[in-house]
Design a protein around this nucleic acid. Structure first.
Lengths: 149, 149
DNA sequence: TTATAATTAATTGCATACAATTGATTGGAG
DNA sequence: CTCCAATCAATTGTATGCAATTAATTATAA
């Protein structure tokens, strides 16, 4: 087989022709940018986005949280136990359905919201996309997520 | 503080207003879609993209591989040892510079390329974005990656 | 009612990711 | 030539992610 034919045959297997790879790489690179700002708050990125849910809805079940974050109990259980150990959430079984574990934010968890106020802007400053580009990227990512249901 | 004022104050901390979150979620969801197609080949996604590099360049150092994949030796060392255990790559120190570990694809590794030929299209079928959308997303992701150097 | 199916978290096992450190080797300044 | 800094991979320790299984509880069908 000639080189050019092989190039064509295998072109779909080239890293440069993948959509998933820059998605995977960019995701990790951006998450890394959170560390300098979250570490002083004693939070990891996963703990931070979990808290973000509780800052908005105060209380929800592990299942609901998992649906919002696209994570399962295998990942969330240790994250929530860690947040509970830090005093930011309470965990307890629902009295109406003992299968359901409810998670509720504490006063300390609420207070952390103030300290996190600047995090989005600080991380945003690391990412030099125009507002238009960021908006388009945002919309395409949600379209991608929605297209995989 | 009134509710509307609080809404405004904390709007940057809402999950829906994050660019990173859909990036993080979409990345994991897409990587998950590889599993049914990579498992029969005995590969994980990380092993697959590492092999993708070797299918193109035959041989490179851990450092070079890390630059291409945005991964460090802490992640790559076990991945490469696993690929070596499966017989897909060889690992050896450079004779010119003993600090450098060279990784080279084997015949078995080359052969796997044939079996992986359909993987990109199979995963692509799970993602229903138009060619234009996919192209724009691809470009924005690389722009994002480049903007964080 | 009662046996079975479905639901929900937790657990287990494995494979990353990555910061920080270590160890071996090389390069460079004086 | 000789330290000393730099480089490179491996190691260590921590925190995910996730598939698969388990355990407890609830819903449902016969």
């Amino acid at each position: 087989m000639k080189t050019k034919e092989a190039d064509y045959k295998y072109s779909a297997l080239k890293l440069k022709n993948q959509l998933c790879f820059p998605l995977y790489a960019a995701s990790r690179e951006v998450v890394k940018r959170y560390r300098p700002y979250l570490e002083p708050l004693g939070l990891t990125y996963t703990q931070y986005i979990a808290l973000m849910v509780f800052w908005e809805c105060k209380k929800c079940s592990v299942k609901e949280l998992g649906e919002k974050l696209y994570l399962d109990s295998g990942t969330l259980t240790p994250v929530l136990k860690s947040l509970e150990a830090k005093g930011y959430v309470r965990r307890y079984r629902s009295s109406e359905d003992e299968r359901v574990l409810l998670v509720e934010i504490t006063e300390e968890g609420e207070a952390l919201r103030e300290k996190a106020l600047d995090v989005p802007a600080q991380v945003g400053a690391c990412v030099r996309l125009s507002p238009d580009e960021a908006k388009t990227l945002y919309e395409l990512l949600y379209r991608l997520l929605g297209s995989m249901e």
